[in-house]
């Protein structure tokens, strides 16, 4: 069993890193260079406001081992303006990405199959012009990619996919945590991940 745990930890897989930060110019760079310095590619990056005023949220997707992702999070948390960084595997989050597709209007009008295809993928038209229609769809990246593949033979003019946005299933929001951060002087607050995962960590 121990060896199984080890291989899982050493295996590269998709991780979603959620970072709560202050809203400050230059912070994207400070966080991005933590990855680029180690020659790690960022698959997707999204910044957004959060439920707490003045707190920003970065959602970053990387394909790496847990060991590396854990270290990345520690380095991210070390940045002065970062409040907290979490990392999760895909089964621990609910996530979505969005795709926009521009398709020639005449193709849609002529070919029923395309209309059916778009319907099947839950795409909806958000702009209809004489020469083109823009469809929007949301889902996991694989779903969006499948639709692109399906649309390619029918004269897809342009397509764009957004970064991932994700919500951690077990998260209770950042509000409470933030209140703690504001109240307490710095030293009173660091999660005890070691004690929580004692069996895994303490190998003695």
């Amino acid at each position: 069993m121990l060896t199984a745990v080890k291989t899982k930890k050493q295996m590269k897989q998709e991780y979603t890193i959620t970072v709560y930060t202050e809203n400050q110019v230059g912070l994207v760079n400070r966080i991005a260079i933590i990855f680029s310095r180690r020659k790690i590619n960022i698959e997707s990056l999204n910044t957004s406001p959060t439920e707490s005023e003045n707190v920003h949220r970065f959602t970053i997707v990387v394909i790496e081992t847990e060991d590396v992702v854990k270290k990345l999070c520690r380095q991210i948390e070390k940045q002065v303006e970062v409040l907290k960084a979490y990392y999760n595997t895909n089964d621990e989050i609910v996530w979505q990405e969005m795709g926009l597709f521009k398709v020639p209007t005449d193709v849609i009008a002529a070919k029923v199959k395309v209309e059916r295809l778009l319907h099947e993928y839950g795409a909806r038209a958000i702009a209809i012009r004489k020469d083109y229609i823009v469809f929007e769809t949301t889902g996991h990246s694989e779903e969006i990619e499948r639709l692109i593949k399906a649309l390619e033979p029918y004269g897809l003019i342009e397509f764009v996919r957004s970064a991932r946005i994700a919500i951690i299933k077990s998260s209770k929001g950042f509000h409470e945590k933030l209140i703690e951060y504001e109240k307490q002087t710095a030293d009173a607050l660091v999660e005890n991940e070691y004690l929580d995962k004692q069996e895994e960590v303490f190998t003695m």
Partner: peptide, 8 residues
């Protein structure tokens, strides 16, 4: 608030 100089 976002800076913790030393852990507990």
């Amino acid at each position: 608030r976002s800076y913790r100089p030393k852990p507990i």
